[in-house]
């Protein structure tokens, strides 16, 4: 009857009361979400972006490796030939259509692993809520970074990642460049970042 002993044990109850009282004055870990956003690791698998080279050309060459490797069949790519007067990408082909169904996507990151040109990359953005299913099919207009975007890192060079191999182009147009912080917010919004989140970013450089 151990439990009965405890039931009638005022000392145990008082101890419990003192614990809860002490907890009232502890620091609370809550982040008031919409006004302050948690800074995810730059390696967080969130919404995709299609990147560009520094000269503004699209990196995607329409090879469809991402769509064939995608375990959720979320990616649709239809490639087309570059014409001499309108060169979209440096190679022969480019993606005429590039669509990702973010409701099917499981954010595994296999597309960015498969991509031979580091064109498709997962960003730390996670706020994709919308009212209609149709709006979760992200087409090229929404995935491709604008030509005037900042400078980002190749996926493998992000902190904690495996260093990129030779032949990668260092300068990449990305909406999540390291200097302004990998923001969870949409570009154009004011960056309300958390110090703790940025600390994760700064740490690997300090260790070097």
């Amino acid at each position: 009857m151990a439990s009965r002993k405890h039931l009638y044990n005022p000392g145990a109850i008082l101890k419990g009361l003192s614990i809860t009282f002490g907890f009232m004055f502890r620091k609370r870990p809550t982040i008031p979400y919409p006004s302050r956003k948690k800074q995810h690791s730059p390696r967080f698998h969130g919404l995709h972006e299609l990147r560009r080279y520094a000269d503004g050309k699209e990196r995607c060459i329409g090879c469809e490796l991402c769509s064939s490797v995608c375990p959720a069949n979320a990616i649709t790519v239809i490639g087309a030939e570059n014409s001499p007067d309108d060169r979209r990408s440096p190679g022969e082909r480019y993606a005429a259509r590039y669509e990702i169904d973010e409701l099917r996507c499981i954010f595994c990151g296999m597309c960015e692993e498969a991509c031979p040109t580091d064109a498709i990359v997962l960003t730390p953005r996670f706020e994709m809520a919308d009212y209609r299913r149709g709006s979760f099919i992200y087409d090229k207009d929404r995935l491709l970074v604008p030509p005037d975007a900042g400078v980002g890192m190749p996926p493998d060079d992000r902190p904690g990642g495996i260093p990129g191999d030779l032949g990668r182009v260092a300068e990449i147009k990305s909406t999540t460049d390291v200097d302004s912080g990998y923001s969870a917010t949409w570009r154009g919004e004011i960056l309300k970042t958390q110090h703790e989140g940025l600390a994760i970013l700064k740490k690997p450089e300090a260790e070097k």
Binding site: T20, F23, M24, F25, R26, R28, P29, T30, P32
Partner: peptide, 12 residues
Amino acid sequence: ILGWMQLRPGPN
């Protein structure tokens, strides 16, 4: 108070 004791801010 319940929130504080459970390390939550409570309704705010």
